[in-house]
């Protein structure tokens, strides 16, 4: 072999190594339009998949069942393919909405505000009847000595107790409760250990307070009531001690560009699809029941100004 040949061999080897990553990855031209995973590249005259998502505040099995039904319903009414994309994390859900990987997301109050602040033009579309005035419930383990109270100043009792919020970015499990706590003169550093905990979810929170891991915690009233109804709460071990005033919470938030993608009036038809859900239709009745709602009503960003203000105040919105 001459020197030149050897160079050629060595170069060929290097090239092979360099080409490997390209070879490992499929050409997705053929199926990009069909499955919608690569949304931004979709061609205008193909029906793009509408991807819906939700913050993970329920158990995954229920999320899959509920949003599977929603996807079917929307797909039928709007005549576009719809897919539910599960996301585990509140933050990831907001990011996925901003980057355009989700078109329509069921957000909590705080995450909703974060979403449309990050994606100008996005807006609240529809919400449940109960979301206009939503409540959180402070709950406590009776062994902690905490007693139910009527007045907000009763929150003072929580000083020196082991206290847990739900998820960090949860509106009902963290943001609004923290706001009411601050109003009542309780700082986060007043809790035992100098910090509150974050249980991660409403169900875990109830279990943690019930088991005595924490003396007290705060939970979404809707979840609390439904667990009470299901008999999953041991009322000897955990009791409600205070109900917060009402605030606007959950809402569907929609991308600003759907009319361009699917045709004029699409966003409006989407809104109608929700507000026209009726208990007379079996599937729609099932959706309403799983959502715990009587009906859906139109929502607007303005309802969330209070949430935004609180979010800024406690540093969750910059």
């Amino acid at each position: 072999m001459t020197t030149r040949e050897r160079w050629a061999v060595a170069l060929a080897g290097l090239l092979l190594i360099g080409l490997l990553p390209t070879a490992c990855t499929p050409r997705t031209d053929g199926n990009a339009g069909a499955d919608g995973a690569t949304s931004e590249a979709a061609r205008p005259n193909e029906k793009r998949v509408l991807r819906i998502g939700a913050i993970p505040d329920q158990n995954p099995e229920k999320l899959n069942r509920l949003y599977g039904l929603v996807a079917d319903e929307l797909s039928e009414q709007l005549e576009v393919p719809v897919r539910f994309v599960p996301v585990t994390d509140y933050t990831a859900a907001v990011s996925a909405f901003r980057t355009g990987d989700l078109d329509l997301v069921w957000f909590g109050g705080l995450t909703g505000v974060q979403a449309w602040l990050q994606k100008p033009g996005a807006r609240a579309l529809a919400q449940r009847d109960i979301d206009r005035s939503f409540h959180s419930v402070f709950i406590a383990n009776p062994r902690s000595g905490l007693k139910p109270f009527e007045d907000q100043s009763g929150l003072q009792q929580l000083k020196g107790k082991r206290f847990t919020f739900g998820s960090e970015s949860s509106t009902s499990g963290r943001l609004m409760p923290q706001y009411y706590l601050t109003q009542a003169g309780v700082a986060l550093s007043d809790f035992a250990g100098g910090n509150p905990g974050f249980s991660g979810s409403h169900d875990a929170l109830i279990a943690l307070v019930q088991s005595g891991t924490y003396d007290a915690g705060v939970v979404n009233e809707e979840v609390w009531l439904s667990r009470l109804r299901e008999g999953k709460v041991d009322t000897d071990q955990v009791v409600a001690i205070w109900r917060t005033p009402g605030y606007a919470n959950y809402t569907w938030v929609v991308q600003p560009n759907l009319d361009e993608e699917y045709g004029r009036g699409f966003t409006e038809r989407l809104e109608q699809a929700f507000t026209s859900l009726s208990p007379d239709n079996p599937r729609q009745a099932q959706i309403l029941e799983l959502f715990g709602a009587e009906t859906f009503v139109p929502a607007s960003n303005e309802q969330y100004e209070a949430i935004e203000a609180v979010g800024r105040q406690i540093g969750k919105i910059r």
């Binding site: 158990n59 995954p60 099995e61 585990t88 994390d89 990831a92 859900a93 875990a204 279990a207």
Partner: peptide, 24 residues
């Protein structure tokens, strides 16, 4: 990575743990 929402089994593990669905 799944536990933090980037897909796969980790996602389910975290959600089932937080919902106390230990059997699942």
């Amino acid at each position: 990575l799944g536990v933090f929402g980037l897909g796969g089994l980790g996602t389910e593990l975290r959600l089932t743990l937080q919902s106390l669905l230990f059997n699942e």
